[in-house]
């Protein structure tokens, strides 16, 4: 048997589109992420309108009775209200989607791999709650910059302007006619929105966003530029 191969790295659902846009990939843990793009300055786009693909990076979810209590016991801070996210000490984000459902995004810095720890800690025995495969089921984009909310107004009917949609607010809504989760998570002073949706629609959404972003000069940005705002 010739089966003794290592698990392959995780690539983005849209790595071809990223390559075409000039992406350079780097290994981050078990993933290959678009770190930066060939050509001009991404930092400027980041504060104007930038779109980062974070799809290969760790995220997870738990759902069912007891999920919230268990996560709290694992040291995850979770708010009372649904559709609100809480920043964790190491930079991760825990978004409560419903009274019994939480979405966890690993921090974008180089902190602890919280999602991996949670996935490993969960055991099926006698559980009344279950993991949700967010890393494979959903793409993960980050839309940043002052034009982000205006750009979203072209694809989404929820008012995401800064004074109407507070930092760490969550909207589970329709974006470009597909189901999506929007989480506002500013990078310092730069407005930023996580966008998660059906992974099979990742290419479709990428093109929708690129089209909507064109009038603002929006462009792809890499993880390195994003990290420059976190440090």
């Amino acid at each position: 048997m010739d089966g003794q191969v290592a698990r392959p790295p995780r690539r983005s659902f849209i790595y071809r589109e990223l390559e075409a846009a000039g992406a350079r990939f780097v290994a981050v843990g078990d993933a290959e992420v678009a770190a930066h793009y060939a050509g001009d300055d991404e930092t400027q786009a980041l504060s104007s309108l930038g779109i980062a693909d974070l799809s290969p990076l760790p995220r997870t979810g738990f759902k069912g009775d007891g999920a919230v209590d268990w996560l709290a016991a694992q040291g995850i801070a979770i708010g009372e209200a649904s559709n609100h996210a809480v920043r964790q000490a190491d930079g991760a984000l825990a978004a409560k989607l419903a009274p019994g459902e939480v979405l966890v995004l690993d921090g974008l810095g180089e902190g602890e791999a919280i999602c991996a720890r949670l996935d490993a800690a969960w055991t099926p025995v006698a559980s009344a709650f279950w993991p949700v495969p967010r890393r494979d089921g959903a793409f993960w984009f980050l839309v940043t910059g002052e034009h982000a909310a205006t750009m979203f107004a072209k694809v989404c009917g929820v008012d995401l302007r800064p004074d109407k949609f507070s930092n760490h607010a969550v909207a589970q809504t329709s974006v470009a006619r597909t189901n999506a989760i929007v989480v506002r998570d500013d990078l310092g002073a730069v407005p930023a929105f996580h966008l998660l949706g059906d992974s099979a629609s990742a290419r479709y959404m990428w093109h929708c966003l690129a089209d909507a972003a064109r009038e603002f000069g929006g462009r792809p940005v890499g993880l390195e530029a994003v990290r420059s705002l976190i440090r």
Binding site: F13, R16, K154, V155, A176, R177, T178, D198, A200, S201, A202, R203, Y204, C208, D211
Partner: peptide, 14 residues
């Protein structure tokens, strides 16, 4: 103008 027509691709589409 600009109607949205979602399409889904399988991972091995290409």
């Amino acid at each position: 103008g600009r109607s949205f027509n979602p399409e889904r691709l399988t991972p091995a589409h290409h």
